[in-house]
Simulated assay, not measured.
Amino acid sequence: MAVINRDPMDAPHKTRTDALVAGGAGALSVVLALLTDPARSPDALGWTLLLASAVPLVWRRRNPLLVLLAMIPLLAPYHALDNAHTAPIPQTWIMLYTVAVTGRPLRTVLTGIGVLSVMLTVVLSINAHQGLELLRISGWVVAVLFCGVDMRVYRQYMASVLDRAERAERTREEEARRRVAEERLRIARDLHDLLAHSITLIGVQTSVASHILTVDPDRLDRSAIAASLEDIADTCREARAELRTTLEVLRDVRPDRGDRDEAEGPLPDLASLPALVRAAEAAGARVDLAVREPAGRLAPATGAAAYRIVQESLTNAVRHAGTGVRVRVAVAPDGGSALRVTVTDDGAGPPKHGPTPGFGIVGMRERARSTGGTLDAGPRAGGGFEVLALLPLQEKGTAP
């Protein structure tokens, strides 16, 4: 089947294979000349013409039509000398099949008409009886031509099937690469949101404890230091729990998870925003939270995106503005199809030019786009920094 499906023009070792085919056709012609019609056994010139007619088969795949035309001046004198007319059949059929299998059907039809016309003209001019006999067996010539055309059509069909299969395979590979890239991006966002928020709060709370210890060591405020250290411990526990959940999803170590892609616990949503506010206030920020949940059901992905956007905005505010920054968080429906998330502060926001630019704003925009929403972030005209996100209330394709 591999040989049949393969295009003969692209087959390896064409010349060597065709040389063997030419030798086999010449040997079979000799056998036919000796056995089929001993009364018309060729003379020396006939044997020369018969064997010479098989030689062009060596180059039959380089230019099939030209090779066929080169055989006609050899076969016409052979038949004109009234030699055994069935002897050249092997090389004739092989060459006709090659022309049919490598060319268009119109060329094949014209070639068949031309070959039959030459054969009948030459043989009828010598012996009318032999001409009628040749006319009766000319059906085999037509059958060979149609066999070549049919094989050509079959190979074209198989080539189209393989081409479609290759395109489908390439599409699957591209889809797999796209999914891997999206998953890596999602993991990067989750780890950034988790670690950046926790590390920032720990850093601020550690600075507060260090400040208390160094400013006035004689009047040590043990309760303030204890509260700061307790906040650090709480932040570490929360970060460890979220990190463990993320790693369980990535490593899939739980045998009872099956094929689920979600974490075991529920996704963070609007109800978890007060905990973020408390953590930011423990780091020294002053936060005003205003949440008005939509009347209908909120898509889990939208709630999680709103939570992460608020989390990153509070982290940036505490990191870049320091303790004492004032932050206002407002979450409310915007019309009937979107959720508006606004976070403003009176700080300077992330630096535009720095040695190590972060990925916080980029990650927030990607989170908003992953739900079908948009996000804008930048300095306010009156001072401070603002993050504004519009997120769809429902997932795509979900009825309200």
Score class of each variant (00 low, 15 high):
Thr98Tyr: 03
Thr98Asp: 12
Thr98Ala: 15
Ala100Leu: 01
Ala100Met: 01
Gly103Lys: 05
Arg107Cys: 10
Thr108Arg: 00
Gly114Met: 01
Leu116Pro: 02
Leu116Ser: 07
Met119Asn: 06
Thr121Val: 12
Ala128Cys: 09
Gln130Trp: 07
Gly131Cys: 04
Leu135Val: 13
Arg136Asp: 06
Val142Tyr: 13
Val144His: 07
Cys147Thr: 08
Gly148Asp: 01
Met151Glu: 12
Arg155Phe: 03
Gln156Val: 03
Tyr157Met: 11
Met158His: 13
Ala159Asp: 13
Ala159Lys: 14
Val161Asp: 07
Asp163Leu: 00
Arg164Gly: 00
Glu166Ile: 01
Arg167Glu: 09
Arg172Ala: 08
Ala176Gln: 08
Val180Ser: 07
Ala181Glu: 13
Ala181Gly: 10
Arg184Val: 15
Arg184Asn: 14
Arg186Tyr: 09
Leu194Glu: 03
Leu194Phe: 11
Ser198Glu: 06
Leu201Met: 12
Val204Asp: 10
Thr206Phe: 14
Val208Phe: 08
Ala209Cys: 05
Ser210Tyr: 02
Arg219Cys: 02
Asp221Glu: 04
Ala226Ser: 14
Ala226Met: 10
Ala227Lys: 12
Ser228Val: 01
Glu230Ile: 04
Ala233Ile: 05
Ala233Glu: 05
Ala239Thr: 01
Arg240Glu: 06
Ala241Leu: 13
Glu242Trp: 00
